[in-house]
Nucleic acid binder design. Structure first.
Length: 129
DNA sequence: ATTCTAACA
DNA sequence: TGTTAGTA
């Protein structure tokens, strides 16, 4: 079997691999989304598994999940050295369901706003003709 | 060259 | 998030 040698990546490398800025990568760490090793010189050391981690973070962020929730969810993923496999994590499902409801509410508010805009727009167009 | 922390025309 | 300063 091809045992994967640990690829040493510093923040600049990870930034290029993921397309995420160094600034943002450090921010993710502040939010507890990433936990890179520190070299003797203080430099952050990332592994190739972090590349996948960042992609996961991006999709979750795109899903509208707050960093606090993402941090908890990431703790529920066990890294077997090759892939990110989900592990037992109490509260994860209910947490996601709660976020889903939160999204439903914001979608609802946005639809209301859209209707209000449509009404105003209709009025303006009517006066113009 | 590259990264680090802290902070802000 | 960008950017900049002063380092290591």
């Amino acid at each position: 079997m091809d045992v994967k040698v640990k690829e040493l990546m510093r923040i600049g490398d990870l930034a290029r691999e993921t397309g995420v800025s160094r600034r943002l990568l450090r921010y993710y760490e502040e939010q507890g989304l990433l936990r890179p090793r520190r070299l003797a010189n203080g430099y952050r050391e990332y592994g190739d598994t972090d590349v996948a981690a960042v992609r996961h973070i991006r999709t979750m962020l795109a899903a509208g999940l707050p960093t606090a929730v993402i941090a908890r969810l990431l703790a529920c993923v066990h890294d077997d050295g090759d892939r990110m496999v989900p592990s037992a994590c109490p509260g994860m499902v209910s947490s996601l369901q709660r976020e889903r409801r939160r999204l439903a509410e914001t979608i609802d508010r946005l639809q209301t706003s859209q209707q209000a805009l449509d009404t105003m727009l209709a009025t303006v167009l009517e006066q113009r003709s």
